[in-house]
Each structure stands twice: as structure tokens, then as C-alpha cells.
């Protein structure tokens, strides 16, 4: 399902290497806030659409602060959408209860929950992408490790991320070599596949062995130590408490409804 688009990861890393106020925030602050965001968004009843609107502010603010191009995020959303779309589309088919909309229109309630699924999807995915794009894998892992992520797993993530490019490049060269020698552009037979991938696997294992040698050469004793340069500042505290308060407010009060009443004069 997930193709190893080395380019996708590379683009993400380029964005993560930008300098911006969002990038300068401590990874822990962004991780905690993003997590709270996800929980808040997902905790809404399933037909809720309008009350989700205020939550757009968080990914939009983070992405804008970070100078992350909106087109990039939109493209990622489209690419990732099919599963949620597919499962969500059953809702309008299965849930036919009519619901009145403003203006005397009626729709099946399933359409509302479908819209809600799409809104949740767009919110959660863009927030998660914003987190990584504004933080970078290295700082995120270091931050999560300080929040209690097991060291072994943090290191695993870092190594995986580091060697993604290297091994993907090898795979790409293999695929290219294969394409040059096959006329019809079809995927190879299982037998050829086995030896291709087997070779790639053996080469990967050899590389792991060499990396291990290089680690030993510089005193590796089973423990990966990181510099951990991050500092928690007042800005991080402000960022965290501010957003948490906002998420809570938007969760307990239907802010759009409130704003709308103000505007349409319904408020007494």
C-alpha cells in the first residue's frame, strides 16, 4: 500500500529543515498538542460537522507558521484519502434517516456522518503531517523519547528513517536494471522476484553488519546516546497551554454555532 517514495520522505525532511517559529518550538510541545488535537477531534459524535470547524485553526496555524506549502499538504491528503473515503461512503448508503438542513433541504443522515468522516480525516491527517514537517524525525524522536518512548524504539525509528534512502536507492537501481532487460515492462516472475529481492535482502544485511562495525569502531556498547539539545522554554509552555485551552473550549462549546448566532442576531 505504501510505496517507498524516497522522494516523499526527502521532501518532508527538506520541509523539516526549514527555519521558522514553528520549527523552533520544542518537539515535545508540538507532539503533546497534536496528540490532544487528535483526541479532541475524534471524540466528537459521529454526525458532527460544524463544531469541528474551529479545529482547522491548529493545522492551518502550524503549517503557516512553519512555512509549509498548502499544496503539498493537500496533495498528501488526496493520496491518503481512498480508505477513509471507501469505508465512509457506506454511511450514506446505510444510514438513510432524513435530516433537515437549513433552507428546507433534507439529506440522509449518512451524508452528515460521511462529511464528518471526511472532515476528521482532513483534520487528523493534516495535523499529523504538520507535526512531522515542522519538527523533523530526529527532533521528534528525541522529544518522544524524553516523553517516555522506549529508547530502543526511538533508535529503531531513527535508523529506519536514515536507511530508507540508502536501501530504496538500491531497490530503484535494481528495478531500473530489470526494466532495461525486460521487453514488455511486466513485473518479473515469482522466481526472478525471489532472487532480486533476496539479493537486496542480503545486501541490506551486509550493510547492517558494516554499520555495526562502524558503530563498534566508535565505542558503541549497546546504548545509543543522543546529544539532546532541545530546551523547554516559556514559548513552548505558552504554545502548549494555549492550544490545549482552545481545544477544550472548542470541545465543550460549539463555537461556530455561537459565532453564527452573534452574526445572525439570534443571540438574546
Amino acid at each position: 500500500m505504501a510505496m517507498a517514495h524516497g522522494g516523499t520522505v526527502q521532501r518532508m525532511d527538506e520541509l523539516a529543515a526549514l527555519e521558522s517559529p514553528a520549527h523552533r518550538l520544542d518537539a515535545r510541545a508540538k507532539a503533546v498538542v497534536t496528540f490532544a488535537f487528535l483526541v479532541a477531534v475524534m471524540s466528537f459524535p459521529r454526525h458532527e460537522v460544524v463544531a469541528l470547524a474551529p479545529y482547522v485553526l491548529y493545522p492551518v496555524a502550524l503549517l503557516s507558521l512553519g512555512g509549509i506549502p498548502a499544496r503539498w499538504i493537500l496533495k498528501k491528503l488526496l493520496v491518503a484519502a481512498p480508505f477513509a473515503l471507501f469505508i465512509g461512503l457506506f454511511n450514506p448508503l446505510l444510514d438513510r434517516q432524513p435530516v433537515a438542513l437549513p433552507g428546507g433541504l433534507f439529506v440522509a443522515a449518512g451524508w452528515l456522518s460521511f462529511a464528518s468522516i471526511l472532515a476528521r480525516f482532513a483534520l487528523t491527517v493534516s495535523a499529523a503531517l504538520a507535526l512531522v514537517a515542522c519538527t523533523g524525525m530526529d527532533r521528534l524522536c528525541a522529544g518522544l523519547e524524553r516523553l517516555g518512548l522506549p529508547r530502543a524504539f526511538a533508535v529503531q525509528l531513527l535508523f529506519l528513517h536514515r536507511y530508507l534512502f540508502v536501501i530504496s536507492d538500491e531497490a530503484r537501481r535494481m528495478r531500473y536494471g530489470l526494466a532495461l532487460r525486460t521487453a514488455d515492462g511486466r513485473a518479473p516472475s515469482l522466481r526472478v522476484y525471489g532472487s532480486l529481492l533476496g539479493h537486496l535482502l542480503l545486501r541490506s544485511m551486509d550493510r547492517a553488519q558494516r554499520i555495526y562495525g562502524a558503530m563498534l569502531a566508535r565505542g558503541f556498547d549497546g546504548e545509543i546516546r543522543i546529544l539532546g539539545t532541545a530546551r523547554w522554554t516559556a514559548r513552548d509552555a505558552l504554545f502548549t497551554t494555549g492550544w490545549l485551552a482552545f481545544f477544550a473550549a472548542a470541545r465543550f462549546w460549539n463555537l461556530p454555532e455561537f459565532a453564527g448566532r452573534l452574526l445572525t442576531g439570534e443571540l438574546r
Partner: peptide, 24 residues
């Protein structure tokens, strides 16, 4: 087994990369 540290990382990358090559 400290060798596992790089081996696990590289094999994770391998799983990603392996999905670039298909068989019919």
C-alpha cells in the same frame, strides 16, 4: 545482541524498499 540495532533499522528500510519491486 547489539548487532540487532543496525540490523533492525536496515531491515525496516528494506521492507519499505521491497515494496518498490513487484512480481506478476
Amino acid at each position: 545482541d547489539h548487532r540487532l540495532v543496525p540490523m533492525m533499522g536496515v531491515l525496516g528500510a528494506f521492507i519499505f524498499a521491497s515494496q518498490m519491486i513487484n512480481f506478476s
